[in-house]
């Protein structure tokens, strides 16, 4: 039976698409636990009635006009692609399953 930290590390790694080995998970779990323990101090702060600060600006309503800008040439878009096929990005065969 894995420790709760090990469980969390494994589950979170899967969610983040980080393929970690068991050994890595065992190294990370105590580090993770220590970091979270250190961060527990946050729970002592009284935040009753405090609005969350979601960004560092007080800007709102920033928009642009609906005017086209030049798209990139396809060769430039695909230049860095590890698997370019006929103008597409190639990836391992998969069937559906986005959102």
């Amino acid at each position: 039976m894995d420790s709760p930290e090990l469980e969390i590390v494994k589950r979170t790694a899967a969610l983040a698409r980080l393929e970690i080995t068991d050994a890595e998970a065992r190294t990370l779990a105590p580090q993770f636990a220590r970091i979270l323990a250190q961060f527990q101090v946050l729970t002592s702060v009284d935040v009753e009635g405090v609005e969350p600060m979601t960004g560092a600006t007080r800007l709102a309503d920033v928009t642009r006009a609906d005017e086209p800008r030049a798209s990139l040439p396809r060769a430039a878009t695909l230049a860095n692609a590890p698997d370019e096929r006929d103008g597409f990005y190639g990836v391992p065969k998969t069937i559906g399953g986005g959102s």
């Binding site: 609906d66 005017e67 086209p68 800008r69 990139l72 695909l78 006929d86």
Partner: peptide, 27 residues
């Protein structure tokens, strides 16, 4: 049916050649 995409200036049209209506933002 806007001219450009939601967050970049690419002018979308259905049926265009693949990956020709893209820019740094939407890729």
């Amino acid at each position: 049916d806007t001219r450009t995409k939601l967050f970049c200036g690419c002018e979308y049209s259905f049926g265009a050649e693949p990956n020709t209506i893209t820019c740094p933002v939407c890729t």
